[in-house]
Nucleic acid binder design. Structure first.
Lengths: 236, 236
DNA sequence: CAAACGATCAATTGATTCATTGAATGTCTT
DNA sequence: AAGACATTCAATGAATCAATTGATCGTTTG
């Protein structure tokens, strides 16, 4: 009765372990880090820049995620690359986000506030996109940084990181709708791309899916640096 | 530039909302409460007794879950019944548990420590169970409290709450294997049932699935108070 | 109406977590 | 070997969280 492993001990221990994961998910910044790592692994500094945190703070948050076994590291020279510990984590993170979107109406409000502020229309849905792509009425561009495209992208998507978009507008057809996607519904790259494209007279729309969403819906994904040439935009 | 809703504001707000859910999942006791509510709604007092917490503490944890919109309440007389806000929450909780089991090896150790301590063998798996049930070599009993059985149970399962098991041993056949299930892998009711049955000379095994697991695998579930009579055990 | 009871609230304690700072570690370059 | 650089560590104070206690609210029942 004294030192035995009781029912209560067992439950406390089991749920205590589960709570380790919960604690890792209890900070906005850690969630932002996780979402970035769902796109591609990267260095602490890159993550710090993306999230607007100091290096030390980023490092500590990453260590919390690592302690919860959600991410793992490898050392490349003097860089430490953090990446997801398992693709299971990416799937889980997606269902976590979906639960949040479903249960917390505030998220929809926040999104509306940001995306509709400047006249951004509703995003295009998967089915409409596929249809228009097949009819060659639209082309799809991936506006994330190059390394994320290399890690995984939607097959057939043209790679134009947002930072290059302005210079490469001539590569895009004016007689088609340009659909931009980025990391997912909380990422602003596609919105900025659409704003830029519209400002230059293109018809443009945003796809809310990120690569993990696309993949989770059963669609294929591609990897590697698909070399981008002029004719690729025609091949779309 | 001063009072506008920037990219950073948007991300902080969006991930901040997601973190509300994470925070709700960051406490062992709240996870235990959630798991109980995945079985059936119930009063604050019932939850306090099950989790071994004081009433006030239980109430506060439940309010945290409610603030995160994971559970909701209704008032019945002087009782307040808490229940899951959506079946989505149950599905999510299951994938959360699966992620924890998959990523945290400590959980498997804890489980082994508790279940193997007294010579408990490995649990029986779904497929084997279905096979034996069909061959009439086994019967399945649900050893959870009656209200949880009423809320949802595996079709064909005989309802024998653990507390009644000892008195109702005569209802069980000695020429078949008795398979007991309860709330899931972190629940100890089935283990205790199996221990009791074996102590009385029955062949008994534990099914690790709970009703939510069973349902998530695509199997049907039944509800209501299936009246249990002697002949039901033959009909199994 | 008064007593009993379920649940919540308010206030307190101690423990944990957060972001920041500056120092320390380890690795690459020259 | 020296310097530059990416990352981590350690220490600090502010903020948040967890559990307890006793009071309070609302409903039911005698």
């Amino acid at each position: 009765m004294s030192s035995s492993f009781t029912k209560r001990d067992f439950k406390d221990a089991a749920y205590g372990q589960m709570a380790r994961l919960g604690k890792a998910l209890a900070s906005p910044k850690r969630l932002e880090l996780l979402e970035l790592l769902c796109q591609a692994g990267r260095s602490v500094e890159a993550l710090a820049v993306e999230t607007g945190m100091t290096l030390a703070n980023t490092s500590q948050h990453l260590q919390v995620l690592q302690t919860a076994r959600l991410v793992e590291t490898s050392k490349n020279g003097r860089y430490v690359e953090y990446r997801l510990a398992d693709t299971l984590v990416s799937n889980f993170f997606r269902s976590f986000r979906l639960l949040a979107e479903n249960r917390l109406a505030e998220i929809e409000q926040i999104r509306r506030r940001f995306f509709n502020e400047e006249g951004e229309l509703d995003p295009i849905d998967r089915e409409t996109l596929l249809e228009r792509l097949q009819q060659r009425k639209a082309i799809l561009i991936d506006v994330r940084p190059a390394n994320e495209y290399a890690a995984a992208h939607i097959p057939g998507a043209l790679q134009i990181p947002l930072e290059q978009l302005k210079k490469r507008l001539s590569e895009l057809p004016r007689n088609k709708e340009i659909v931009a996607y980025c990391r997912g519904p909380f990422c602003v790259l596609a919105k900025e791309a659409v704003d830029l494209l519209r400002a230059h007279g293109f018809r443009a729309a945003r796809l809310e899916d990120g690569v993990p969403d696309w993949f989770a819906q059963g669609f294929p994904i591609a990897t590697g640096d698909e070399p981008v040439r002029k004719h690729v935009s025609r091949a779309q």
